[in-house]
Nucleic acid binder design. Structure first.
Length: 307
RNA sequence: GGUGCCAUAGCUCAGUUGGUAGAGCAUCGGACUGAAAAUCCGUGUGUCCCUGGUUCGAUUCCUGGUGGCACCA
């Protein structure tokens, strides 16, 4: 029998955590978390990380393993998750991966192209140039250095432009030359289970969850990490909005960010995020969709394919 | 009871000197390959409250309703 990676995915708030715990117990196995923010140890409330109790019930990987200012990326996740998977497959037939970080899931399932890590020096240089000269300047520069990519890149998206430029500047080669976009095959079977609910249910659960996070001390948690706010780990739902409130920023409507406004924004942005996830997952035809309450249907399906 | 103001998108409102309408928010759709909870793009048909009148033509002006708000009794 082949080894199986069972992927449980879905939009935020749909109920992945609860179902994954049940399934992991059913298979008596571990969970690999595919969540780019639950990786960080100091922000468990805002990222809705598995509780201490959950972690005791089932062994998790990639939860709370990083410091708030650690660098991380989908590629590192690919490498490290593969390594852990290989170990786990020596003792387990089935391993679960669960999470909502779309690119992390794809990185492990399909692989992503190798690219050199950008040095801090180059990154700062490019970011600085963006601030000084604006996006169009960078677009022009990219057109010179990598005309192929320049033709297809979204020219309004600063991150895409900057990253391609960084690669060009650092390696002296084009960004396109690293972009093979080939799909890697894995030496194990991958089964994807998608969890979905009607929109209203997802939205209601998100709204309730945010209220609960506030009750559980999200504001204090955000204050504790505020000094690290420049780090990517905190460019995150829940924190960025509270930071605006802390800083008494002015809203588009010309008012000072109140706590209520920040909380509404968190809810709204989380809803938008969940939609974005749905959009991404919709493209993946390998996903078999279920309602999270139908654990039995899922197990029945898995049995039928010899899981 | 009297007077004044208001009634337009799911919400808050703008607007049409009379030629059937548009912003913000909400909603919805999409892109995505080493920062991805990031970053970026796109999306507005709605009995313009109802009725009658004037008019070639009314959501717009006028009459009368209905509902809301404010003030006066």
């Amino acid at each position: 029998m082949s080894k199986t990676l069972l992927v449980i995915l879905g939009p935020t708030g749909v109920g992945k955590t609860k179902l994954s715990l049940s399934l992991a117990e059913y298979f008596n196995t571990h969970i690999i978390s595919a969540d780019s923010r639950q990786l960080y140890a100091d922000i468990p409330i805002g990222t809705d990380a598995p509780s201490a109790k959950d972690l005791k019930r089932v062994k998790h990987h990639f939860v709370g393993t990083l410091k708030i200012d650690d660098y991380y990326s989908a590629t590192r996740f690919e490498e490290e998750a593969l390594e852990i998977l290989n170990q786990l497959f020596t003792t387990h037939q089935t391993v679960l991966m669960t999470g909502g970080s779309m690119m992390y899931i794809d990185a492990l399932c399909k692989g992503i192209d190798y690219m050199p890590t950008i040095t801090l020096e180059i990154r700062n240089k490019v970011v600085e140039s963006y601030k000084q000269n604006g996006l169009e300047y960078l677009v022009d520069k990219l057109e010179l250095l990598d005309p192929d990519y320049s033709r297809i890149v979204d020219k309004k998206n600063p991150k895409r432009i900057m990253h391609a430029l960084e690669i060009c500047l650092m390696t002296g080669k084009t960004y396109s030359s690293y972009r093979t976009q080939s799909i890697k095959t894995r030496p194990f079977r991958i089964i994807k289970i998608g969890l979905i609910r009607p929109r209203e249910e997802i939205y209601e659960r998100i709204n309730n969850r945010v209220d609960k996070m506030i009750e559980n001390g999200l504001i204090e948690e955000a204050k504790r990490v505020y000094q690290y706010k420049e780090n990517n780990s905190l460019n995150t739902l829940g924190y960025k909005e509270l930071f605006c409130y802390f800083e008494k920023k002015i809203t588009k409507q010309g008012e000072v960010w109140s706590l209520d406004y920040a909380i509404d924004k968190i809810k709204r942005n989380t809803r938008i995020y969940s939609r974005k996830q749905i959009t991404w997952f919709k493209r993946d035809k390998e996903i078999r969709w279920f309602h999270p309450d139908n654990l039995n249907d899922i197990i029945e399906y898995l049995n039928s394919i010899n899981c």
